[in-house]
Amino acid sequence: MKTKIKQMHEELNTFPTSKAVHTMASKLYKDLPKSDDEFIELCDELIQSHDWTLYEMMTIWIKKRKTAYLTKYFKTYEKWLYEYTNNFGACDQLCYRVLNPIIERYPTLFEEVRKWSKSDNPYVKRASAICLMKSTKSFVVNFPFSYVKEISDELLEDNHIYVQKGVGWLLKYSYLSYPEEVVNYIKSNINRMSRITFMYALEKMPRQLKEEIIKNK
């Protein structure tokens, strides 16, 4: 199977489009191990190549296999976050396709998310915010606002641009689920927010409300 994956991977361009990667992932998926344990083991081997295309295909495969969202695999996914996720694109794909679904299914895993927010790795920190958003045609925050607040409080003054963007992104979509809470949170923390976080957080608000809050920045 690994030989076939390598051969088909070589057929892709050096910088394949997302559509091409999805097509290749679908072609290969039917031949992947039926056993979930063997499937995760294969993914774990592939990710060690540090190849972005294989990383992306792996997250697509996991999203297709709902039985891969079991707590016994969580530590493997967490290892991928810590050891192989080194850019914001990889972070977000792992969050949307792998981490968010399993954390939503098992909310007690939020205990681990708390630890991510205190990491020295900016992409692990970013994941603590991004994993709270469910990716659909847009994004939805299904977790209690207390989770959003806790992670935001921890990351709000971080100076890494992708952490700042991650917090802003989380607050932006949390507004759709918790409008009053998010507005109050922004007003209470307006002087702690970077300009990037602040402007991202306002994006889903009505124009008049947005302008009112901006006046106080």
Rank of each mutant, 00 (worst) to 15 (best):
L42R: 01
F74M: 04
K75E: 11
T71P: 09
R114P: 04
T3G: 09
S177C: 09
C43N: 04
F15C: 03
R65L: 03
D31R: 07
N86V: 08
Y84R: 07
G168E: 01
M133N: 03
P122N: 08
S119I: 12
S177K: 07
T23D: 13
I40M: 14
K66W: 10
N121F: 05
S135M: 12
I102P: 00
S26G: 08
L99N: 01
G89T: 11
V113Y: 00
Q7S: 15
K149T: 11
K137S: 15
E10D: 14
Q48V: 09
L81C: 12
Y106E: 14
D153K: 04
I5T: 05
R65M: 03
Y77H: 12
P179Q: 11
M58N: 05
K187H: 10
E150S: 14
H50R: 07
A90S: 10
E180Q: 10
L81T: 07
I196F: 02
Y185C: 04
V148S: 06
E83L: 13
L32V: 09
K215D: 07
E41T: 15
W116V: 05
K27V: 10
K27I: 08
K125A: 01
D44S: 04
T17P: 02
G166E: 00
V141W: 05
I40Y: 03
I161F: 09
K2Q: 11
E211Q: 13
M57E: 00
E180P: 01
Y123N: 02
F198K: 04
T17C: 04
E41P: 08
L176G: 04
Y106P: 08
K72L: 15
V98N: 02
K172S: 05
V98G: 01
N87T: 10
I5F: 06
V124T: 14
I214F: 10
N86T: 15
E78F: 07
I214T: 14
E78L: 10
S117Q: 06
K75Y: 10
L209Y: 08
N13T: 13
S117M: 03
L156T: 06
Y147K: 11
W61N: 02
T136G: 15
L28S: 08
F15K: 10
R195A: 12
Y175S: 03
L132S: 02
F198Y: 12
I5H: 02
K217M: 13
L99W: 00
M193P: 00
R195Q: 13
L54P: 03
R97S: 09
A201T: 08
W52H: 07
V113F: 04
E104R: 08
K19V: 11
A68E: 03
S174V: 05
N159G: 04
R97C: 07
L171M: 07
W116Y: 11
E78P: 04
S119F: 06
S128L: 06
K64G: 15
F143M: 12
K30Y: 13
S135K: 13
R207E: 15
K63L: 10
F74N: 02
